[in-house]
Design a binder for these strands. Structure first.
Lengths: 178, 178
DNA sequence: CCGAAGTTGTTCGGGTACGAACAATGTATA
DNA sequence: TATACATTGTTCGTACCCGAACAACTTCGG
């Protein structure tokens, strides 16, 4: 959405198409670059780090969430990973098939399913995550270290303005799939 | 990846799992929040604006790129949209099926395919894009107006650090699929 | 207690999403 | 002007990705 063309050039072209409609170009720039950056980073990390394990970005995120919080209920895995519960079902099946996680029905609540790492899954993450973090570092290396926290806060502000409900930590907002 | 848990709480838990390995938590926060924000905004816009046309985010981006730059070669649509050419083939088939764009072989180069809007496609974008931009505005409304440009620049810096090659505008970097 | 209302994970259908392999086409080299 | 080399869009296989509908289960109101 912000490809090889100049900013001004794109804007001029947009004005030509939209006509006199008033547009917020600053907001447009942020949203389009948000996606460009997100896509670029995901694909980069998939190619440099995750491809060695034939793993997708989402699979890695789910594995990471499970690694950090296990045992964890699937609804919370979906919440933490930022994917829908429908998507999670498929991803978990994949991860289970590869022997990295296990599913287990809750004893106290028959509706819930708990996810745990296998030893193989834990070994994998112990080796893979430092490598992943090193590449994360490379992705932001051109940005002044003192600015990184501000950057993260700006991103949190965007997320918050879209997902208003967020009561207290450790107590997810009532019930939404994502 | 940065769900209902506190920042410090997640960090403490990560330390517990990773052990003594040195990690860049600032970089980690930026990358994970980049994806959280990106996902949240995409899903929000799909639900609020795009669902009326039963359109996905990617379909909208492709339609937008075509709208702004038509007639445009498919390789450049993929480049501007930030998706692979393989993905584009499927999306274009969908958009063509719905009567919003057309495919046309280039007369000067038999390998190229040109994409154009149909009148119906143009009408749709003329109505949909202002609505879309209004929602983009809402997504960043909590951010100080003077900071938006800086924000966009930070996002561009991330993209640039991952996709280093970028010669001159109007002249895509030799040949990469995305 | 017992039916209504709510919650949870799965299934289903349609649509992305990628890399690799491919055939068609264009270009460069000798 | 052949013959290698490069480029382009499509196809293929596999893996997401979501909303809607669903069955299993829990909880709440009377």
């Amino acid at each position: 959405m912000a490809g090889p063309h100049t900013l001004g050039e794109t804007e001029r072209q947009v004005v030509d198409r939209v006509g006199q409609l008033p547009l917020d170009y600053a907001a447009m720039a942020v949203v389009s670059n948000l996606f460009r950056a997100s896509n670029a980073v995901r694909n980069h990390l998939e190619r440099t780090v995750l491809s060695s394990q034939n793993m997708s970005w989402t699979a890695f995120v789910v594995l990471w969430v499970t690694w950090i919080w296990e045992p964890i209920e699937t609804r919370n895995v979906a919440l933490e990973s930022g994917i829908s519960k429908a998507t999670l079902t498929g991803v978990l099946t994949t991860l289970e098939k590869r022997g990295w996680v296990t599913r287990e029905k809750s004893e106290t609540d028959g509706r819930l399913v708990l996810v745990r790492m296998t030893p193989a899954g834990r070994e994998l993450m112990q080796a893979l995550f430092p490598e992943f973090n090193l590449e994360e570092q490379r992705v932001v290396e051109s940005i002044d270290a003192g600015t990184l926290d501000t950057f993260a806060d700006l991103l949190r502000a965007v997320t918050a303005s879209v997902e208003p409900a967020a009561s207290s930590p450790d107590e997810p907002p009532s019930s939404q799939d994502r």
